[in-house]
Amino acid sequence: MTRWTRRWLRRRPHDPERNAAEYVSGELSKRATRWFETHLLHCEDCWREVLLGRLGRRVAEEAREQAPAGLRDRVRAAVQFTSEGGPAGPPLGS
């Protein structure tokens, strides 16, 4: 075990949820990613959480929607209306 790994583990006790969340979000440093990927080979808990996290993220991404084109126009008009001294933009729901 390297000095870096010992320091990392001291700072971060074993926490499969947090590790998986950071790993799946791509927010571990390169070095931490290398360490974690080695760790995954023999840690069943972290491996399971990573699989679930990846699948959940993929499922969530399916829900992404594009704003309707008309909504952009409505926002532009509301901002323009407000900047020209209107009260607070066109009425909601218009």
Binding site: A21, G53, L55, G56
Partner: peptide, 12 residues
């Protein structure tokens, strides 16, 4: 991180 992971896990 915890909420994110629990939400992902529930969806999965």
């Amino acid at each position: 991180l915890s909420r994110l992971h629990r939400g992902r896990r529930a969806l999965a």
